[in-house]
Amino acid sequence: MSDQVISAGGRAWVSGVRDAIPLLGGYIPVAVSFGLIANQAGFSSWEAIIISLVIYAGASQFLFVGMVASGAPLWLVVVMTLLINARHLVYAPNLAPWLTGNRWWFWLMHGLTDQVFALAHTRLPALPSSERLGWFTGAMLLAWFSWVGGTALGAFAGQELTGRWPLLNDVMPFALPALFVVLLAPRFTSWLWAAALGCAIVVALLFAANGLPNMAIPVAALLGAAVFFVMQSNTRAEV
């Protein structure tokens, strides 16, 4: 991928759908797991599907059904769900320079998940402004529908699926780190960026490997940004 403007040839939404296909490998197995776990936590299949449809935020949905099942107060369930999703606050402002004035963008923000943000942050600057809305609509809808569809699959047939193809369930989620590698590789343009991004990767890996996946992203991102600004100010001071 390059930063030059590339037209999708008048079918921007198809281009968005095509670019979002790698997300399915990560979304569907996790959504199947969510459907299965929600069922085991006492939610009906339709309730699990509605939660995926309206909340649409992976980690926080697992927390939501887990806390409800354990009998936690509902106000605390809501607060914890929103706290986990607080990282989403910085996504839309990062995309704002490439979004047009169309009012549809506001509704499309429902689909601004971690992975859709990562994809859009790389692809939107490379598209002509007339194609960005269509591209984002295609990418966002495919990701959303795959999440809801995966939840339905898990809720109605999760146990049978994971029992029959255990390896598939293990392998497909690797599509997400593979996608992030591809999205991130072009950003290693200097030692400054390499240090900041490398720090964020290692810190998030350590947090997640030690059972703190929800803290991993915000803490690692803040440390990565701190490394960037500290190194930048040191370089300026030396000059």
Binding site: P173, A200, A216, A221, F228
Partner: peptide, 28 residues
Amino acid sequence: TAAMPRWLGVLGPVMIAAMLGASLVPAA
């Protein structure tokens, strides 16, 4: 010149890097 705050421009890529790090931990 309409521009994003510098900190926000840095935070976007490091968020993606953090997502990569967290997603590298295999479920098995």
